[in-house]
């Protein structure tokens, strides 16, 4: 990104890299270096992808995946932000919950898979349980960092001007925590995608992950690769969107700060 100024198209070497990957995947099975039942050449994967996108099942599954991802993410972000602001701004709560957060956070969400299966079977609820659990901690921890980052001088200034509690949250706490909220959102967005696809793949909840499992079970290897490429592309798009959004927001935030301090 930083080399963009150096003239020429900065994306070109990257595109060459991607083209190289496609070429290698085409050649490996064609030259019999890899069994094409394990890794079909690019052209066959592309053909399978073309077949997939012409079916309504594919679009339906994509929709289900995105739906579960979005719902889980929104629930996790709202819950994480609210919990983070409340816990973070009350020192007593913060001290009391620190150890519990530290304990619950590293628990792998996939440990909950059996529980999710018992409670919701192969329905959306299973996916949501895993997605919300995993994404919630990402947001919570970032918001807690953000609240801790509040400048004590700003806080005291607000107090000295007799800001109400709400005013302090609105004008001091929230603006400071906002960039952290967005970082949490970005992290949660990619974790949520991973867990959405995982739940579908392992539990069989409807979505792209389930389609991958189906393709695997029916030996449709090219289709399986095609669907994996789709999940990867989805991940790249989500990363790019959240990163761009974050950069815009942070740029705005820092420029405002710069004006205030000068």
């Amino acid at each position: 990104m930083t080399s963009a100024r150096r003239g020429g198209n900065p994306a070109r070497p990257g595109l060459a890299g991607l083209a190289g990957l496609l070429l290698i995947v085409e050649l490996l099975p064609r030259l019999r270096l890899v069994n094409d039942r394990f890794l079909p050449p690019t052209s066959r994967i592309a053909a399978a992808l073309a077949d997939e996108v012409s079916t309504s099942t594919f679009w339906h599954s994509l929709g289900e995946t995105l739906y579960a991802w979005a719902i889980g993410l929104v629930v996790a972000v709202v819950a994480g932000v609210l919990a983070g602001l409340v816990i973070g701004s009350v020192p007593l709560l913060r001290a009391l919950t620190a150890s519990t957060v530290e304990f619950l956070r590293p628990i792998p969400s996939v440990a909950l898979i059996p529980l999710a299966v018992l409670l919701y079977g192969t329905q959306l609820g299973s996916t949501l349980l895993l997605v919300c659990y995993a994404a919630f901690w990402q947001v919570l921890v970032q918001v807690l960092y953000g609240v801790a980052d509040v400048d004590p001088v700003a806080e005291e200034t607000a107090r000295s001007f007799r800001f109400s509690a709400w005013g302090r949250v609105r004008h001091v706490l929230w603006p400071t925590a906002l960039p952290y909220v967005f970082t949490g959102f970005r992290l949660a967005a990619s974790v949520a995608l991973v867990l959405t696809v995982t739940a579908e793949l392992v539990i069989g909840a409807p979505g792209l992950g389930k389609e991958i499992a189906t393709a695997q079970n029916s030996d449709a290897v090219a289709t399986m690769y095609a669907l994996i490429v789709v999940t990867g592309a989805l991940g790249v798009v989500i990363n790019l969107l959240t990163r761009t959004g974050e950069r815009r927001l942070l740029a705005w935030h820092q420029s405002v700060r710069g004006e205030v301090t000068v």
């Binding site: 991973v194 995982t198 991940g235």
Partner: peptide, 12 residues
């Protein structure tokens, strides 16, 4: 290429 591989949900 690396960004793409990172973006693939590992369990698949």
């Amino acid at each position: 290429v690396l960004e793409f591989f990172r973006a693939i949900p590992p369990p698949v």
